[in-house]
Design a binder for these strands. Sequence first.
DNA 1: TCCGGCTCTGCACATATGAGCACACCGCTT
DNA 2: AAGCGGTGTGCTCATATGTGCAGAGCCGGA
Lengths: 308, 308
Amino acid sequence: MGPEQHAMLVSIARRHYLDGVSKVDIAKERGISRYKVGRLLQTALDEGIVRIEIQARGGIDYELSEALRVKYGLRRALAAETPDEVHVHHGIGQVASALLSEIVTRDDVLGVDCGRTLASMARQLHSLERCDVVQLTGMAGVIGQTATDITRVISEVNGGRVFPIYAPYIVPDVHTAQTLRNHPAIRSAMNYYPKITKACVAIGAWTPELSQMYPLLNSADAQRLAQRGVVAETCALTVGADGQRIDAVDERRIGVSDTALKKIPDVIALAGGRGKTRAVDAVLKSGMVNSIVTDTFLAARLLGDRPD
Amino acid sequence: MGPEQHAMLVSIARRHYLDGVSKVDIAKERGISRYKVGRLLQTALDEGIVRIEIQARGGIDYELSEALRVKYGLRRALAAETPDEVHVHHGIGQVASALLSEIVTRDDVLGVDCGRTLASMARQLHSLERCDVVQLTGMAGVIGQTATDITRVISEVNGGRVFPIYAPYIVPDVHTAQTLRNHPAIRSAMNYYPKITKACVAIGAWTPELSQMYPLLNSADAQRLAQRGVVAETCALTVGADGQRIDAVDERRIGVSDTALKKIPDVIALAGGRGKTRAVDAVLKSGMVNSIVTDTFLAARLLGDRPD
DNA sequence: TCCGGCTCTGCACATATGAGCACACCGCTT
DNA sequence: AAGCGGTGTGCTCATATGTGCAGAGCCGGA
């Protein structure tokens, strides 16, 4: 292509894409037909003279996110860019806290699970509309990362009412569980579950290290569940590889039921790091959550169907 | 703006600008109105999420070129990017040769003036449609840069017929000029002038160094012309600052007349370097040329109305 | 010289798009 | 309770735009 042709393409492209002049008007300006202008602009596009770039804000890989969203039919998916594959909690927490700030409104009721990533999210929460905060599960895990701690931190940020559950995640026998569920404060929280409109939950893989729940069982029970196909849990609700519920110790749990969880309009899972690919895949297929915040590495593995 | 909103903007922008999906279809995909899609895309544009860049090919500044073209109402203008303001001939010659290759067709008749820049153009001419080449002016200047040399070099490239003028640019008296014009070979060339469809000419400023013509006059004549307002010449046709013809030694010239030059459909001037701003401005205003190939420095000065 | 393929052009017609407008909703004040 | 700006939404209607198609010119080969 010669310089005259090139100059005309550049000039017309400028006029259209930068000055916003319509093709019809450009055609009038230059005394050519609008079809010709359209075709010249198409040429400019094909030749790479006009480049359209989507400049995503840093911190999130929107291409991976969108692919993930489509693959699992989610309401939203966000893949946080993290420095490496190990220290992903901070990044996921940051994105999740921004997400919460964005979507939580005054009359939401927010349900909260436990976990390291959720704790990071809560710590990074700068502002949040005042709303009720309900603890979705009993207490488990390291101090400062239990659902009770997270619930408290969030309520401190937004000044909302709190519905904590001062009770363990899993208790040794059914009777104790029933007793606890009848405790007025706990009952008050659990009665509020149907009102929850948004929830943040963690996803655990079925290993002692990658689940808050696994270590609470005796190892025989845990292994028996593994043999029955459990690969993941969220809110201590165990699921198999295809996302099907595998009823485990439900009657000994203190927390939201799977049916109640599914009725929450907006359930956001937070999960990242090595070893969780199959678990996240399973929970996303379970229908118990409709949004995911993860890291780019895990997102890529989910899309590539490669477990870790 | 929160990550969800941002992700949606990015996702929609991708779909529209990269995948080419219409706003209506995107609206259907996402179950929202087309107005909303339009407004989201506008937001994405305003927020800088979508960036449209016009990637010009190197070697030419198309922005300056276009501004120049509009300012002088030219058919085309090209500002060559050159390493510095002194060695501009190579760059201008390169662009001009590419331009010639592009626009010259088999049944064009090409008229050629003399000068350093035109010589550079001719040397860099790789391929050119076969066409007749006519010398527009007598010989002047350094050997190898006369119109005769340039005409020959061009014809060697394209194998076309040549109409040279073996005669000086300017002769001492009217009689000699008339005699030469009646010489069969010269007459044959000059009779061909009305058939010329495209021409390349140089622009000289009215100083001994910056014009092929000035040194051919005795200094008294030259200075007298300067007093009459001559600031530039092309093809030894002198013009004043507003582009008006100032009849100088026309009867002693051997070359195309101003009326004949104006009748050529496409006259391309080549000029660049320091000290030529007023001269180029004048010639562009004269209506004798309708295209310019110059360097970016001179182009910028022409646009800034700053003489050098 | 004729012919087939090729490119370029502009048309008709269906869609897509832009712009102003009215209306509903919301939080806030009087 | 009523008033009231601000915001977001979808409407109508005039334009702008995309697409398939047919004709014109052009070129190379039979």
